[in-house]
């Protein structure tokens, strides 16, 4: 219930109306959107029960490692009603052809695969939000200040997922496992996404917000 309460309204893309449409403009708009979502995500993480009790270095470590996974899971959720496109925002959808043209092909295919898997499972919002929190909690940060506290944080979320499934789908004992098994592809895709965006900044000079760059650097 707490995760449902602290989920914010999806943001809209905010393209510069004075710039003519181009791939560069779409990328700038996309990165600006992701940066604003990242800001919300940091606020959201603080509302996950147990997160704020972790030490500041551990909060940073989890966010630096898991932020892209959490953001991409929202894209997957928004894209669930579409067959081929990815919906980053209600007014920013990318087809496979557009993604390729923007240099984001490494993202498109695995995100569509993940969308397909979760759609086949008929995943609901409660499950998605728990997966999002678990992706953050299970971020395999290299150095932790207090790994016991992080483990307790993970266990609380895992128990919440188990409670949810045992009360809503008592006959499906494999559902928690199936949901957790979608996380490796999410992690792999998040890393590919971070590399893609870093490359777009260094090689194609796509301007990006300082926070977004700082978090990309922490991820790679």
């Amino acid at each position: 219930s707490q995760l449902l309460v602290c989920e914010t309204t999806p943001l809209l893309a905010d393209p510069d109306p004075t710039t003519p449409d181009s791939d560069l403009k779409t990328l700038v708009t996309l990165c600006d959107l992701l940066n604003r979502e990242l800001l919300l995500l940091i606020g959201w993480a603080k509302n996950i029960p147990g997160f704020s009790s972790l030490s500041l270095p551990d909060q940073m470590a989890l966010l630096q490692s898991g932020w892209m996974e959490a953001l991409l899971l929202l894209v997957v959720w928004r894209s669930r009603g579409l067959d081929e496109d990815l919906e980053f925002a209600e007014n920013l959808r990318l087809s496979e052809v557009q993604s390729r043209s923007l240099g984001l092909e490494e993202l498109h295919t695995p995100l569509r695969r993940l969308t397909h898997t979760l759609r086949e499972m008929n995943i609901n919002l409660e499950e998605l939000l728990l997966l999002k929190a678990l992706a953050l909690a299970n971020s395999d940060a290299e150095v932790l200040d207090c790994s016991r506290a992080v483990q307790t944080f993970q266990e609380t979320l895992h128990e919440a997922l188990q409670d949810l499934e045992s009360s809503t789908r008592p006959s499906d004992s494999h559902r928690v496992g199936r949901l957790l098994m979608t996380l490796p592809l999410l992690r792999q895709t998040a890393l590919a996404a971070a590399r893609c965006f870093r490359r777009l900044h260094t090689e194609s000079r796509v301007p990006m917000n300082t926070l977004f760059l700082e978090m990309l650097d922490a991820k790679i």
Partner: peptide, 15 residues
């Protein structure tokens, strides 16, 4: 933490 000063600030200050 110095390298990641924006995140540090956001988590510390709450704004």
């Amino acid at each position: 933490q110095e390298k990641h000063k924006i995140l540090h600030k956001l988590l510390q200050n709450g704004n």
